[in-house]
Each structure stands twice: as structure tokens, then as C-alpha cells.
Design a protein around this nucleic acid. Structure first.
Lengths: 203, 203
DNA sequence: GTTGATAAATAAACACTGTTCATTTAGACT
DNA sequence: AGTCTAAATGAACAGTGTTTATTTATCAAC
């Protein structure tokens, strides 16, 4: 089967993604290029296009892997918590922890915008939605009686908020940078928000 | 003074920024290039480098103008409100309104990352801080007795949250897109957060 | 009016980027 | 050994930001 080399298409795909991860981790999205990836795996740039449709598809797959890692981190954070509020705090801290530990990988998820009009594939959206669902699960007891849709919306609201803090902090657009300070902000957002829910204010 | 043309350096600067604004508004940051700007104003690319240090500086100036526009919008939103909570809601709505009305201009503020290690100039940071201060002013009565620093931190927390919702919505990473739906989320965040403050939960 | 200085503007180059595709080449089958 | 075929390449294309030698238009002096 294999013609010139001993690598199957799947192997080359894997090697390329792995090399891309390495490059992104070091230099961020801006430091990534098709030629650099190709060079890293000992092939020429043309080979990448036998395996990926274009560089966007490659990046989407790297992002998918990052989302998987992130999801695992968030999931792990929920195993040793009892109260909903405590769990949400734990998920928030895991989120901040991940973003500050892998800033380039994490940022690339949001820096990479698909060509306009093009929607993310279903399998990708699923990976994103999984994360929101983790928060939904915790909000459920706090919003007993509310509709499923309403709970989903509340989870989105809170989690986008946490993300916003993280995003501005990690891109140095705030004047905080260490994970500790970021967590102070996200903790504050979560605590106030959850307290607001408890206070049962009209939305 | 003027040698070949009738344009001073200042005029060329202005023309370039204006052309860049036009291009960004239409095609976003990705649609911007030095050559396109130069062509738009009837000069060649070299001329831009007599007037701007590099393309990053040009973009920073476009962003500064966007920040000015945005600040005016937020400020205008605060003139006809009475309660702090209502005012914060109004600022939030103005923020969403601006982001959805000028998505490319607004996104560019956050898409454009300076080379690492380089800090944004002081005049730029001032323009950002002004916005947070608008929120601080409204939070002040709700946090009477708290330190200035604490209030500033709370404003940051809340506003990054609002921004996060906006950012994910405008980049189609959420499943909402019309301004109406985004406002539902930001309203919810603000209402719950402010209610949480009122509930005086330990931060 | 001619000449010379000077600063504005250009054109061309450099090293990159993503992407395509004719050509080469290595392995499998007859 | 010869043929077929798919893997891999290398060169090309159009674009990017940036630099710099060269041209050119205007002003001042003669």
C-alpha cells in the first residue's frame, strides 16, 4: 500500500497535528505555517494538502484536541465537589488553570475564525456544547422548576462571562496576569452570579 | 513644504486611517493590507511607512478611533438613566448594540495582538480604562464603603463578563446572533450579578 | 531662466504566507 | 524486466509586511 514512505495517510495526519501542537504551544497561531509543519515532520508542504483540505481544517483538528484536553480538565474538577456553587467554582478554576497553563493552545480556539458563512462542523459544536452542559448540570438544582432552555441559557450566560475574564486576562488586555488574580475575578463573578440566582431576581 | 503632492504627512495619516476603517468595516482585519490601504488613497505602500512605523501602529490607531466611538456610545447611554442597575444595563445594551452594529471594527480591537513583550502605549490603555470607569461610577453606590481598588475589580469582573458574552456571540461561537438574544444574556448576567452584590455574599 | 539641493514618492526587491499541479519516483503486479 | 499507479515533490502563483536605492517634483540661489 504505502508507496514511498512507511507512513499511512492517518499516520501523516497524526504527525502533522502533533507537530502543529508543538509549534502552537511554542509560538502561538502566528508562529504556525504549513511549511513549518511539513518541515517538522520531514515532508514537503504539498503532502499536507493530500491529507488536509487546507490549513483551516488542520487548525480545526488541533483545536478539537485542545477542546478534548480542556473538557477532561473541567470534568476532573467536578469529581470532588459537593455543592453546585462549589462545583461551578471548581470548573471555573480549572478553566482559568487550563487557559494560563496552555495560553497559546487555548487562545487559538478563539483566534481561529472560519471563513464567513461557513459553520463549524457538527462534531466540533458537540465538543463545545459538552462544556456548557457541565455547567448546566450544576445549575440544575439551583434553578429547579425552570425550563431546560432557560437553564441552558443561564449556563451560557455565566460561562461566557467566565470566559470573557479569562480571554482579556490571557491576552494581556487587563492589568492582571497571574492565574491567582484571574481566579479572584472569576470566583467573584461566579459567586455574585450564583448569589443573584439564589436571590431569585426577575431576569 | 509639500514636495510632490498637496498632502502633508498628517493628511496622509488621516487618509490612511480613514481608508483602513473603510476596509475593516467591509472585510474585517483579514481583509486589511498595507497595499490595499495605499491603493485606496492613491499612494504606494512605501509611503505608508513614511507615516507609520509599521502596520501594527496603523491598526492600533484605527482601534483607538473605534474605542473613542465606543466610549461615546457608552457615555450617551448613561445620560438618561437613574438607578445604578438601570444604568449598568443601559451601558451593557449600548455595548452589545455597538458590537453588533460594527462587528468588524469591534472585533479588531481584540483580534489585534501586539508582539509579545510589547505593552500597549499609555494613551491606549487610558482609552480602555475610561470604559471600566463608567461602570465603576455606577457600582460605587452599590458598594459603598468598599475600597476604590475593590470597586475597580468588581467593575472589571462584571464588564469582562459582558464582553465575553458579546465576543462569543459576535464571532458565532454561540448559537445566538441577533442583538436581541445577546442582550437577553447580558441583561441576565448584569441582573444576577448586581443582585448578588445586593445580597452581600462573601466574595 | 538655469542650476543644484532636498525631501517626497516610488519601484523593486526580500522573505514570508497558503495553495495548486505538472512532474518525478518508489514500490507492487504482471 | 516492464508497466502501472499512487505517493511525494518542487516549482509556480498571488498574496503578505517591510526595506531601500532610485527617481522626481518642488523650492532656493544664482
Amino acid at each position: 500500500m504505502a508507496r514511498r514512505s512507511d507512513h499511512t495517510k492517518e499516520q501523516i495526519k497524526e504527525m502533522a497535528l502533533s507537530a502543529a501542537e508543538k509549534l502552537v504551544t511554542r509560538d502561538g497561531l502566528q508562529g504556525l505555517s504549513a511549511r513549518k509543519i511539513a518541515h517538522e515532520i520531514g515532508y514537503t508542504v504539498g503532502t499536507l494538502y493530500l491529507v488536509f483540505e487546507n490549513i483551516d481544517e488542520l487548525i480545526s483538528h488541533v483545536n478539537a484536541r485542545t477542546l478534548d484536553m480542556l473538557y477532561e480538565s473541567l470534568l476532573a474538577a467536578t469529581v470532588s465537589c459537593r455543592q453546585p456553587r462549589t462545583c461551578i467554582l471548581a470548573i471555573g478554576r480549572a478553566y482559568v488553570e487550563f487557559a494560563t497553563r496552555h495560553p497559546h493552545r487555548w487562545k487559538m480556539i478563539f483566534e481561529h475564525n472560519l471563513a464567513k458563512g461557513v459553520e463549524a462542523p457538527q462534531w466540533y459544536r458537540m465538543k463545545v456544547n459538552r462544556m456548557f452542559e457541565l455547567v448546566e448540570q450544576q445549575l440544575q438544582p439551583l434553578l429547579a422548576g425552570q425550563s431546560r432552555k432557560k437553564i441552558a441559557q443561564t449556563a451560557k450566560t455565566l460561562w461566557c462571562g467566565v470566559h470573557g475574564i479569562c480571554a482579556l486576562a490571557v491576552t494581556n488586555k487587563l492589568e492582571v496576569d497571574d492565574a491567582q488574580s484571574i481566579q479572584t475575578l472569576t470566583d467573584s463573578l461566579i459567586n455574585h452570579f450564583v448569589a443573584g440566582i439564589a436571590a431569585d431576581i426577575p431576569v
